[in-house]
Design a protein around this nucleic acid. Structure first.
Lengths: 213, 213
DNA sequence: CCCCGGTTGGCAACTTCCTGCCACACTGGC
DNA sequence: GCCAGTGTGGCAGGAAGTTGCCAACCGGGG
C-alpha cells in the first residue's frame, strides 16, 4: 500500500490494521458503519479499551441485527457509555469507516478468503462518502431508543423463531403461541425488519447466521 | 443404565457409545436412520474404518440434505462401496438405530446441551420401530440414483441460494439467472425438498446451517 | 366516569409463492 | 421421419404471506 496514492487497496484485516493503526490512534473523529460487529474486528479490539473518552467524536451506525444477540448489544451499550454515538438503521449499508473526514476505508468483496479494503484519501471521494453516511445517520435511530423498543420483542422472539423454523404455517404457529393470526404476522414482520431481511428465506438464513435458532 | 431394563435412557453420545459399543461391534444387522451425518458421530467414527464388509447387513436412511455437501456425500459413497445400503427419503425421520432387530436406539430431545437416547430392548417395541423403519425404507430412493439426479442440480444450487439469500423476489431472481419464473420456482422447490424444509424461512435456516450460504 | 394512547385481532385487498396442467422444443434411438 | 422421454416455461387457480384499516379491548391519568 502506498500512502502517497489517493486510493489504496489492502487485503485482509491484518494488513488493514497494520497500515492504518496510526490513523485510528490519532483520529479525532471516527465514523463507522457496519452490518455486524464482526466486520471491523480490528478497530474493535484495539481501540475500545484505550482512551475512547478523549473528547473525540465517535459515531457508529449498525443494522438492527446487532441488537438481537446479548453479547453485541451489551458491547454497544458499553461503547455508548464511553461516549460514542450509536444509531441503528434498517437500510442495507456498505461497511465504511471515515477518519477525521480525511480518510475513508471502504470494505470490498471477499477475495481469496480475505476481505479487501479500499483506503481512500482523495478529498472529493471522502466528502461524498461522508455525505452519504450523514444521510444514513440522520435516518438512523439512537440505539437507546431502539433498544428499549426491542426489549419486549426479544422476549417473544425465541418462540416466534421456533415456530418459523419448524416450518409450520402461520395459522398453526399463531394458534400454538396463543396469538391471533394478525398479531403473529406482525411479530414476524418486526422480526424480519430487525433482521434486515426482505424475504422469509433470507430471514431464516440471517437468524441461523446469528445463532438465534 | 441398567441392561436388565427394557428401556434405558442415556445422556450424550459419549455415554451412549460407552454403553452400546459392544452391541455395535457384534451386530450382524445394523439399521440407521438420521437427518444428518452428525447425529451418530459415535457410530460413524469407530465402526466404519474397521470391518464393515464382514457380511453383515447395513442399511442407512438419510434425508436428502446430506447429499448437498460434498464431504458427507463422499462419505456416503464410501459407505456404499463397503457394502452398506443407503437410501434417501424426503420425509422427516426421527433418528433411530436398530441392531439385530433386538435393540432400538432412539434419539430424544436435547436436554442440558446433550442429546438423550432411549435404548429399547423390549421386543414388541423394537418390532414396531422396525416396521416403521421398513416402511420408510421402502419409500426411500437408493442413494446412487438420488445422487445422479442431484449432480446437476448442485451445479445451479449456489446461484439459486445466492438469489434467495439476497432477498429479491422470484421474478427478479429468475431473470437474473436467465430462467423462466416457473423453472426457477421448480428449482427452489427441489432445493426445499432437498433441505427437507416446508417453508422458505426453514429452508433459509437449514441452508445456513449446512454452510451452503 | 370519560378520555387517551397502546395493543390486539378480525377483515379485506394485495402481493408473493406454490403447483398442476399443457404446449413447445430438444435429444437420442428406431 | 417418427416417437418417447425429458426439460422448459406460460398459465391458471389456489395457498400462503403482507399490509392497511378499524373496531374492540385494556390500563392509566384527568
Amino acid at each position: 500500500m502506498k500512502l502517497a496514492s489517493d486510493v489504496a487497496v489492502v487485503h485482509g484485516e491484518e494488513e488493514l490494521f497494520a497500515r492504518t493503526a496510526h490513523l485510528f490512534a490519532g483520529a479525532e473523529e471516527v465514523i463507522c458503519a457496519a452490518n455486524t460487529l464482526n466486520t471491523w474486528a480490528v478497530s474493535r479490539q484495539r481501540r475500545v479499551p484505550s482512551g475512547e473518552a478523549t473528547g473525540r467524536r465517535v459515531r457508529k451506525l449498525y443494522r438492527p441485527g446487532v441488537l438481537l444477540e446479548p453479547g453485541p448489544a451489551a458491547h454497544l451499550r458499553e461503547l455508548e457509555r464511553l461516549g460514542a454515538e450509536i444509531r441503528i438503521t434498517p437500510d442495507e449499508i456498505n461497511e465504511t469507516i471515515i477518519l477525521d473526514r480525511r480518510t475513508a476505508i471502504l470494505a470490498g468483496d471477499l477475495s481469496y478468503g480475505e476481505r479487501s479494503f479500499s483506503v481512500v484519501t482523495r478529498p472529493e471521494v471522502v466528502q461524498s462518502v461522508l455525505s452519504l453516511f450523514n444521510a444514513a445517520w440522520r435516518g438512523g435511530t439512537p440505539v437507546s431508543a431502539f433498544d428499549a423498543e426491542f426489549a419486549e420483542v426479544r422476549a417473544l422472539l425465541p418462540r416466534i423463531l421456533d415456530a418459523l423454523a419448524s416450518g409450520c404455517k402461520d395459522e398453526t404457529a399463531a394458534r400454538t403461541l396463543g396469538l391471533g393470526l394478525r398479531t403473529y404476522r406482525r411479530r414476524v414482520a418486526e422480526l424480519m425488519s430487525a433482521l434486515g431481511a426482505t424475504s422469509r428465506f433470507q430471514a431464516g438464513a440471517r437468524a441461523r447466521e446469528l445463532g438465534l435458532i
